[in-house]
């Protein structure tokens, strides 16, 4: 019961961006992935979530291969991702952003919309209640009716997390949840992630901010030039000579 990535390879032209990456992320874990710029972190996320097709390798969710599925099918299977640069629905309100993410809506089919209005209304009420609960949990209630494009960078990160939660996922892939976020909100976002993890949702988190990440995740892996060069508890990993070389260019 986990997210297992085996031997993923990805080339961009003649460049090997991922070179046989394997990772095993247990269900319900809080797993950090670090690495210097250009290490292949976002590409690995894209391969796991289906936005980039890998050359070789397998992705399994709870033992089932999902690497041939479309991105939307993987999300429905319970593996939801967020983006480094937030992709909010700018002209929709925060509340509408969340409601739009709810799965299996009768009102999203034209037939359902015109021929089953009572059912659509009932589902909408349920979805609105879920969205309300998530907004409260993520402290977004004050901005519920604001167009999402007007939110701050940190609020947009929270909104993306909230949208992912609407799918009731087993795993969430967070791409740099702290990038462009002010320090106060970083602590807040970390707190929310910890709360959610306590409810059983697994997280795989890419992050540049080493300090913030190591405080959050008990287990990290290091990606460098397309390979995993170390994994384990943060202290041990950061003490690793190879890791220090990758980050500091061998000056230590």
């Amino acid at each position: 019961m986990s997210l297992d990535i085996a031997n993923i390879t990805k080339n961009f032209g003649g460049m090997r961006v991922l070179d046989g990456v394997s990772l095993s992320v247990p269900t319900g874990s809080l797993f950090g992935l670090i690495g210097p710029n250009g290490a292949g972190k976002s590409t690995l996320f894209a391969a796991i979530s289906g936005f980039q097709k890998q050359e070789t390798g397998e992705v399994r969710l709870d033992g089932t291969r999902i690497d041939a599925l479309t991105p939307h099918a993987r999300a429905r299977a319970g593996l939801v991702r967020t983006f480094q640069v937030p992709r909010e629905f700018g002209h929709l309100t925060v509340r509408e952003n969340l409601c739009a993410a709810a799965p299996n809506q009768t009102g999203e089919s034209l037939l359902g919309l015109f021929f089953r209005p009572a059912r659509v209304a009932r589902e909408e009420a349920e979805i609105a209640a879920e969205a309300e609960e998530i907004m409260q949990r993520l402290r977004l209630t004050q901005v519920a009716d604001q167009p999402a494009r007007l939110l701050s960078g940190g609020q947009k990160k929270l909104l993306e997390l909230g949208r992912a939660l609407m799918l009731k996922p087993r795993f969430i892939l967070l791409d740099e949840p702290f990038a462009g976020v002010n320090p106060v909100l970083i602590a807040e976002i970390a707190e929310r992630i910890r709360d959610l993890n306590a409810t059983g949702i697994g997280f795989l988190i890419i992050e540049h901010d080493l300090e913030a990440l190591t405080r959050l995740t008990p287990y990290i892996a290091v990606l460098d030039r397309g390979r995993i060069i170390a994994e384990g508890a943060p202290d041990a990993v950061l003490a690793d000579v190879q890791v220090r070389e990758a980050y500091l260019g061998g000056a230590v």
Binding site: H72, A73, T82, H91, N97, C99, A100, E108, L110, L167
Partner: peptide
């Protein structure tokens, strides 16, 4: 009716960010 429905909400989401719609399983 379509514009104010969940269908309308989703097509406006597609207009605003199609990649995010895929990432949300649709």
């Amino acid at each position: 009716r379509i514009a104010r429905s969940p269908f309308g909400r989703l097509i406006q989401a597609i207009r605003d960010n199609e990649v995010a719609v895929k990432a949300l399983g649709k």
